[in-house]
Amino acid sequence: MQPLTTTSLQIRDNQLWILDQQALPQQKNWCLTPDAATLINHIKALRVRGAPLIGLSASLLLALLAEKGMAQAELSQTLEQLRIARPTAVNLMNNLERMNQALASTQYVHRMVEEALRLVAEDRALCESIARTGSALITPGSQLLTHCNTGGLATAGVGTALGVILAGWQQGKVQNVWVDETRPLLQGGRLTAWELGELGVPCQLICDSMAATLMAQKQIDAVWVGADRIAANGDVANKIGTYSLAVLAHYHDVPFYVAAPHTTLDPACPNGAAIPIEQRAATEVTGVAGSFGAVQWAQPDTRVWNPAFDVTPAQLISGWVLDSGVITPDQVQAGIFQPSAE
């Protein structure tokens, strides 16, 4: 396969390398990912994360394995193993469905390589469209709040919600970005704050519990988040804490936008209650671990409930910003989940 580089993925010497997002921002380590077991471990440990990026990494690995001579039957088994690595993020399933169609071809090696590279190129284009569409909704002088990480680290392109914010800043419309620390694993504090700093975008890091006070003080003009899955009725699964922000934004009359590619839509999922929610390890709440070491602040036997995602009901969302346009609340209420013209 030809060499390829995104912010978090590389193809070099016909090997897949993944930027270890657990080690950021203290270390920038690239992890060799030769097989499905290694990739699944990376996904579960959140070394590779972000719904679009997870789907792309799985697609690229399958294409490389096909090039290296793995038989169709074994490729099919590997594809099914990857399919269940991250149950909440539908991009993985959507990408693997396209790879499965390529695998069914008599020229499956060529078709799988072609399809994997097409998915990467499409994701870059989708991100650009989302950024262009979403930035038109940002008013001059805005202070924006974002949750988790939705930039180039999580996609092949400029990102989803963070791509919108970056475009707004480049247009001179963003005054400041409030960055939630974001549980689990503090991905806003570790990744988004670092990414915005690298881009030169002014930002301030806050604890997740501080957003309400900022909204009450009129310090937040809009909230922008990404999505791991959007149900057919407009309900959205995203990183835990997103629902809380939507409730706060609704109370304080602050616009709340979801930015995502159309690949995050799941028309087969009727509503948020049908979205599987991953539970994560208790140690992510009882302490913290990273490249800096490990710290335990709660008793080791403390009972913990640690969902990785929550579901935001459609009625709390001001707009769904897709690569194909904006879906409005009126459209969703009318049962017409189709984007309006840009």
Rank of each mutant, 00 (worst) to 15 (best):
R47P: 02
M112K: 05
Q81T: 11
N100I: 00
K28E: 11
M210A: 13
E122K: 05
V311Y: 06
T155K: 03
D301L: 14
S8C: 07
H252V: 03
Q171F: 05
T192S: 11
A45Q: 14
A66T: 04
L322H: 01
E80Y: 06
L32D: 09
Y243C: 10
P276D: 12
V332N: 04
S57A: 15
H262P: 00
E181P: 03
I40N: 00
D330F: 04
R124T: 14
Q170P: 02
L62S: 02
A45K: 13
T283A: 14
A211H: 01
T146F: 09
Q107S: 14
Q27W: 05
Q2M: 13
G152Q: 09
N14V: 13
L46W: 02
L32S: 12
W178K: 03
V295P: 00
L64R: 06
I277F: 09
P52S: 10
M99H: 09
E97G: 12
A102N: 07
V158D: 03
Q77T: 07
T139Y: 07
S135F: 05
P329V: 13
E67G: 15
G319T: 01
S244W: 11
L32Y: 11
T192W: 12
T302V: 12
V288R: 00
T213E: 11
R12K: 15
N233M: 08
A89F: 07
G200C: 08
Q331S: 15
V247S: 04
I84Q: 15
A71T: 14
V311N: 01
T160R: 02
N233H: 08
W305R: 10
N100K: 15
S318P: 02
G172M: 06
V223R: 03
H110I: 12
T88G: 02
E114I: 00
V109N: 08
T33F: 06
T33N: 03
S57W: 12
L322C: 04
T146W: 08
Q107F: 09
Q107I: 06
M210H: 00
Q217Y: 10
R118Y: 12
E74I: 10
C203I: 13
D235L: 01
L61I: 08
K44G: 03
G272I: 05
A212Y: 13
T33V: 13
N95D: 09
Q27K: 13
R190F: 14
V295S: 09
S142E: 05
L117E: 15
R124M: 13
W178S: 01
W169N: 07
V321T: 01
E278L: 09
T33A: 04
L153S: 05
G293M: 07
Q81F: 05
T283R: 12
E342P: 14
L322G: 01
E181A: 14
L117A: 11
A85Q: 03
L62M: 11
G241E: 03
I130H: 00
P87C: 08
L162N: 12
I206G: 00
L79G: 00
T182Y: 10
L103M: 12
A334T: 05
A212S: 15
T106D: 15
